[in-house]
Design a binder for these strands. Sequence first.
DNA 1: TAGTTGTCTGAGAGCGCTCCCAGATTTTTC
DNA 2: GAAAAATCTGGGAGCGCTCTCAGACAACTA
Lengths: 340, 340
Amino acid sequence: MSELRLEDIAKRAGVSRSTVSRVVNNQPNVSEKARQRVLDVIKITGFSPNAAARTLVSRRSNTIGLVLPHSVSTFFTDPYYPHLIKGITQACNQYDFTLALFVAGSKEYQEKLLPRLSSKGFLDGVILQSGHQADQSIILELKKTNLPMLVAGRPLYNDEVCFIDIDNIAASEKAVRHLINCGRKKIAIITGPLTSTVGLDRLAGYRNAMDSSSLKYNDNSIIESDFTEQGGYNAMQKLITIKPDAVFAASDMMAIGAIRFIRDAGLDVPKDIAVVGFDDLPIPMVNELQLTTIRQPVVQFGFKAVETLIELIENDLPIIKRVLMDTELIIRKSCGFEPG
Amino acid sequence: MSELRLEDIAKRAGVSRSTVSRVVNNQPNVSEKARQRVLDVIKITGFSPNAAARTLVSRRSNTIGLVLPHSVSTFFTDPYYPHLIKGITQACNQYDFTLALFVAGSKEYQEKLLPRLSSKGFLDGVILQSGHQADQSIILELKKTNLPMLVAGRPLYNDEVCFIDIDNIAASEKAVRHLINCGRKKIAIITGPLTSTVGLDRLAGYRNAMDSSSLKYNDNSIIESDFTEQGGYNAMQKLITIKPDAVFAASDMMAIGAIRFIRDAGLDVPKDIAVVGFDDLPIPMVNELQLTTIRQPVVQFGFKAVETLIELIENDLPIIKRVLMDTELIIRKSCGFEPG
DNA sequence: TAGTTGTCTGAGAGCGCTCCCAGATTTTTC
DNA sequence: GAAAAATCTGGGAGCGCTCTCAGACAACTA
């Protein structure tokens, strides 16, 4: 079918290649008559220009990469990622970009992905899902390619890198303050892995809220876990020994696990122990348990990430951009809050 | 950094552009001395060839597209898709392909995705996730582009199209036969939407198994649902009126919902009603409930899909390929089977 | 020695497009 | 009316690569 070139369309429309190019790219300086004739021929023939040739000369592929390093091992189980991708593809559709997905297995990154990522003329820019210390070297390598890059999630060390993240510290503060306002006195936290900024930042928010109140807490109030349901269950098992009257779990899955343990222990949520989670993804259990939680705008986050990357791409000089997105406290029943 | 061209490497290595090209592409007819010198320069400079220029002349982008039409509305909630993508990206990594992901919103397909899909020189081939009647027109339009295409999931109408699917009919037969072997007499089915081949085929398997036994069933034994947990619950509510002693649910999520209703009704699984599901994705509930189910090899399916598409791409003449993959019956406790 | 093979090398064309520029044509200005 | 400005058009160069082909050279055969 369409082995047609610009030249062929030009011939059929009785104009030159240049004019067809102008029409295809919606440029001015084409007479209405010529434009219409070209448009007609294009419609009849079903012509569409060769992307590779275009990219070669214009230096723009209109393709961005999303890189999920191996540290993102929860990709295949965590509902977070489909929602992230939803936002990203929505933005790609809107801005006429194509998304290339790079998922690294354990050792594939170095040999397989990096060469493809750094090959000139394929990607206009890259979003790297990160925030884990293991990704430090990947960030450095990608920086070397000079490709516009946006890290999704605050990078642990790297300062001279653009990133977008939700405001985890403020969000956690909000969650813990709410527990304080509900009259809870002994508030514990189940954190994510402290090798990642998500884990660290949500703990920092807890500390901030606690420090600015008169409540006491110590290392025993803080249990590090892994964002999974079972992890939350196990963490709660340890936590129960200090008899907290409230727990802030740094993810909904961990909150669900914590609640499971609390109930197994014969206690009541929220009467004995109030629980607040983090994420508010549409997991059926969240609603069923009436979990109070922090809603992070995952879809919008993905969308905004693409918009930010496009800015980076369109800006010639390298700039450092940092974007922090706000979250929302969703009050349900697991924190024992009684409105009014 | 690397605004380097083949020519520049050639100059530095004291050879010609052609020789560098040969080295880069691992071609013969280069002396060991020359090859080594070129390799050294490439290493030092960090050169990597321009993908667009390569694609333009070689007519190969080494990029394939995965298209998820709007009919795949469960993309963002169903754990099936992350696993599918896992298999696809694994294969892409292995065969040195890049994956471009196209997710269509409600009306975006026509205006946004199709032009990008059909633009020559960007994709070598396309995998279309389908099996729903709504995708018929998409299949036809994609066929017109002459792009090698593989449908993942049996297409409803289109015969002259390549596809890969699991053997849903044989799988369902296996599931229902197992219930029969367990001594169940009144076996009902909760199907998926009968607008899709998955729904239809799994029902066909049920009919096959029942027909080849002496057991009776009628339209009341068949409830159409939607693959969701709530849908399974509702379907079981209707089914309970005919008092079945076994239910085959065409997805694990529906099986989970069905079990929830059975228990709400004060009945026992498997004593009163045996339940078999379909999927065996790593949903925590599946294990918790000890659900007997059909395991479909999702990751391998994605992998095989890529391999098949690559065959299609490498074959000049258009061939029709059909691949059916086998499934496995995983016997747990929800069907009341006692081994030995 | 001359002829035949085989290995290695570099020049040249061309993939299909965009963009610059010069020339043709129309429109505006005084 | 001629001159100036604005609009339109097409040819040519060139993006960075691959691939063909002819020539240079080395290594065998007779």
